[in-house]
Design a protein around this nucleic acid. Structure first.
Lengths: 331, 331
DNA sequence: GTGAAAGCGCTAACAG
DNA sequence: CTGTTAGCGCTTTCAC
């Protein structure tokens, strides 16, 4: 038999369909003997419960969707890993969606999935607040690396992290930094800039911003050139991808890193440990962000779970000191 | 109304449920006027067809699963991108599963999903042939970077690629290479080794193999040390991750690349262009592999589609020459 | 061209 | 503890 159903099992086992159903879903409510008999028959027939039929009734799909603003960025990879890991641990299925940096695609994809998943984790969503609120009203939503009142979120502590970056630069004698900004609709970009500026201010050094730039290696050229129009001795790039592009362009222009200028990135992607010079960058437990986000989501999907978990998780960052930062050149 | 159904739409539009259904699924079989009316009402109510109810009846889920042997490897990332891209283009949902290099996990995950997806693309599957055949008997399956008679597959042309590698090395004066093998259950590993050996033989140079090694940077140490026990002047590592680890270890031991020994990797991952020296590696259109695999799968799921597409796609590789290979040292 | 009704596979009352 | 039965939302004969 191709795909046996509970009817087939029930017939073969000489019981009612509900008994078969119970043997699988609420095993305690069947006598041990019948249960074992049913399970044995089911196994013999190769029966597998049909999750769709189950979902149709229960409204629960055992599936969560993860939406990533740009799957091209290796950074998200870690988030995906963490999310996949956690979902699997609870036997949940993880659906992956790439928004290609387009709010419209992001929104459409989410709407398409709204009735087939139990909830969404959105990584660095580019959607405007209103859209997020509207989606959160339909389904449980957890944000990763973005915050919005009322919606649970998991973020790395970039305020603290940016302060560490600035302290690090100040201790090396830098008095002027420039932030190469990420996309305009990136919450992360504004968060980082405001944290950087605050820290710079309180430590008495100058900070300015140029950009926005798409956070890709290929944009590093324009970003580096932008940075060189300032008098900054330290460049803080929106992420490692951009930072790597900046370092490449700087080398091309004969500007030495870190002798002439220091460069700092964000995310601590795999490649930042491999390039030359190795990149100083603000890392953190990204896998853990993915893990935590899915965990919160699963909790929200559980009855009474909504209150158990703190809705706003802030994970510590970690400033990874490598070769791209050094003492400030004389000005 | 939270989740309007066709009943709600039918009631509001003053038609039968079947008419609403037809308006969505077989628009030609409703008069233009009623169709537009129904669609208008549906839109107003915010009606969205429930894919599970649809799947329950049709058996088609508009979903494909991609199983990856180890999501940790950035190489798969490209495959995932391609697959995601192609699935989205047909409004299919892509479910992502990580097998963590464990055949058992891989098998269990697949069985879990068998009744909820329309098919599987398996990237570098570690499953034994029998399992693959059994799964392919249940659902459409497309293999990526693995071949098995009767099951459609998309692979890069590693036979040709390995020959290019060997020719490249021979032209640099190398007379002895060592292959640092990947996992024992990796089809890729045996394919590469046999292609390498054949090419070496026909070009009259020595080839030997050490390993197997897990293809991770961390294994590069052991792999490099293994390679140094041979008299080879060229190292061909199972993939870039391993190659990067090897290069690091070599540097540690004071062995210069490429002056003392040349190193070649596979996959052309992002990082291989960033490390020092930059890695010579056998790349190819990995995104295209992912794309093609999903395309074949979707074709198989379409009636009459099974015959339309060639079941075995071989895409060209591309030897990317960078700094890690050079003329052989005198022996 | 449209409606009525059965059924996809499963679960949850409700009886017994 | 177990059987009967009515749907979950949708598609599809079969009538009209």
């Amino acid at each position: 038999m191709a795909h046996p159903t509970i009817y087939d099992v029930a017939a073969a086992a000489g019981v009612a369909t509900s008994t078969v159903s119970r043997a699988f879903s609420t095993p305690t409510r069947v006598s041990a003997r019948t249960r074992e008999h049913v399970l044995a028959v089911a196994a013999e027939l190769g029966y597998r419960p049909n999750p769709h039929a189950r979902a149709l009734f229960s409204g629960r799909h055992h599936t969560v969707a993860m939406v990533v603003s740009d799957i091209t960025n290796p950074h998200y990879f870690e988030l995906i890993r963490g999310a996949e890991l956690r979902a699997k641990a609870s036997e949940y299925t993880l659906v992956l969606v790439n928004a290609e940096e387009s709010p419209r695609i992001e929104y459409d994809q989410i709407q398409r999935l709204v009735s087939s998943v139990d909830g969404f984790v959105l990584a660095a969503s580019r959607l405007p607040d209103e859209n997020l609120e509207q989606i959160a009203a339909q389904r449980p939503v957890v944000l990763m690396n973005r915050e919005l009142g009322g919606i649970p979120s998991v973020v790395l502590d970039h305020v603290q992290g940016c302060r560490q970056i600035v302290e690090h630069l100040v201790s090396l004698g830098h008095r002027h930094l420039v932030y190469l900004a990420g996309p305009r609709n990136s919450w992360m970009a504004s968060t980082r800039w405001s944290a950087l500026r605050t820290a710079a201010e309180s430590l008495g050094i100058a900070a300015e911003r140029v950009g926005p730039f798409m956070p890709k290696v290929s944009q590093g050229g324009a970003a580096a050139d932008g940075a060189l129009t300032t008098r900054a001795t330290a460049i803080v790039a929106h992420n490692d991808l951009l930072a790597i592009g900046v370092v490449q362009r700087l080398a091309q222009r004969g500007v030495r890193v870190p002798d002439d200028v220091s460069v700092v990135g964000f995310d601590d992607i795999f490649a930042s440990d491999l390039c030359t010079p190795r990149l100083t960058t603000l890392g953190g437990a990204h896998v853990e962000v993915g893990r935590a986000a899915v965990e919160i989501l699963l909790d929200m999907a559980t009855p009474n779970g909504r209150t158990r978990t703190p809705p706003r998780v802030v994970l510590p960052t970690e400033l990874v000191l490598r070769g791209s930062t050094g003492t400030a050149r004389e000005t």
